[in-house]
Design a protein around this nucleic acid. Structure first.
Length: 292
DNA sequence: AAATTGTGTTTCC
DNA sequence: GGAAACACAATTT
């Protein structure tokens, strides 16, 4: 029995779609110098070329070939290169420097310092749930004040259990309750670019140290399709030599994707690490390149 | 290209 | 408090 339903509207990947697509992405980004053909890719993965291309295109919004061009290091370098000279000035001119200004996702955020967290955090209720996303199975967490966590679950890396523990370990004193329905609106809103509107702001609660929050706020100023180096971020928070510390803070961002930690790269243009997998970071950048 | 040194912040004794 | 670990970067072999 094969699945013959053909809902063109349903973009959400089902089953092993994400596994297939991420496999392709991995292959392409590891091997982009050889510019492997579609047939070759499909052969390697034991899939039908036509079917593979359809799946990939439906999922990523661009063909494997286009993706190959879009997400190689060349792309990263080009984006960075275009911005290089005017980067500091341009970023300010675009109104990026204003405190809590508008940004691409129209996210309104409020910060919770560690002190606040310690006092009020105990007993703070966090609801969480799992939903499919363009980047695989996502774990969302929310307080009554807004979204506070977004993670991803991979079957081969511990699945839901691992993702959940990774997140709950960050705020051990909170009270957690499983409630898929409660976070569904967030899932629908976050992964639909059509709804990134000012009249539909997304409320986010940032829980972290003072330094981390400064870094995360800077991340929020990076527009879709643009990249930023760790040292740029360090400069913008007024700690030019702290790029390494910035990297560590970026990596600890609890609200993955919404706070666009995937748009931070090394100064050389190389894509550095990603908490939820480098492949997913590439996928996000490719997805955004296609939307932007 | 790889190893080395200088870094700031957080975490874990 | 101090050491070790980091999603970095600049400088040396």
């Amino acid at each position: 029995m094969t699945i013959s339903l053909n809902h063109a509207k349903d973009i959400t990947p089902a089953g092993d779609d994400y596994a297939v697509v991420s496999g392709v992405i991995e292959m392409l980004t590891e091997d982009y110098q050889h510019q492997p053909s579609l047939d070759r890719i499909a052969g390697e993965m034991g899939r039908d070329p036509l079917e593979l291309q359809k799946t990939f295109t439906r999922w990523a919004g661009l063909s494997p070939k286009a993706f190959l061009q879009a997400v190689t290091l060349d792309h990263a370098k080009r984006l960075l290169g275009e911005e290089r000279m005017p980067l500091l000035e341009a970023s300010i001119e675009l109104g990026l420097s204003g405190p809590g200004r508008l940004h691409d996702l129209f996210v309104t955020h409020e910060a919770m310092s560690p002190g606040e967290w310690k006092e009020k955090g105990r007993g703070l209720a966090i609801r969480y749930g799992f939903h499919d996303s363009p980047f695989g199975r996502a774990l969302l967490m929310a307080t009554d004040r807004g979204l506070c966590g977004l993670a991803f679950s991979d079957e081969d890396k511990g699945g839901d259990q691992f993702a959940l523990e990774d997140m709950t370990h960050r705020w051990p004193d909170a009270v957690y309750s499983h409630d898929d329905a409660a976070v569904l609106p967030y899932a629908e809103r976050i992964f639909d670019p059509e709804r990134w509107q000012a009249n539909e702001p997304l409320r986010v609660v940032l829980i972290g140290t003072d330094f981390q929050i400064r870094v995360w706020e800077q991340l929020l100023e990076i527009p879709v399709g643009r990249l930023c180096t760790y040292s740029d971020l360090a400069n913008r928070i007024g700690a030019p030599k702290a790029s390494r510390a910035v990297g560590a803070a970026v990596g600890r961002n609890p609200v993955s994707f919404v706070v666009p930690c995937h748009r931070a790269i090394g100064k050389s243009g190389a894509l550095t690490g990603y908490h939820w997998g480098l492949t997913r970071k590439r996928a996000m950048l490719g997805w955004e390149a296609a939307k932007a």
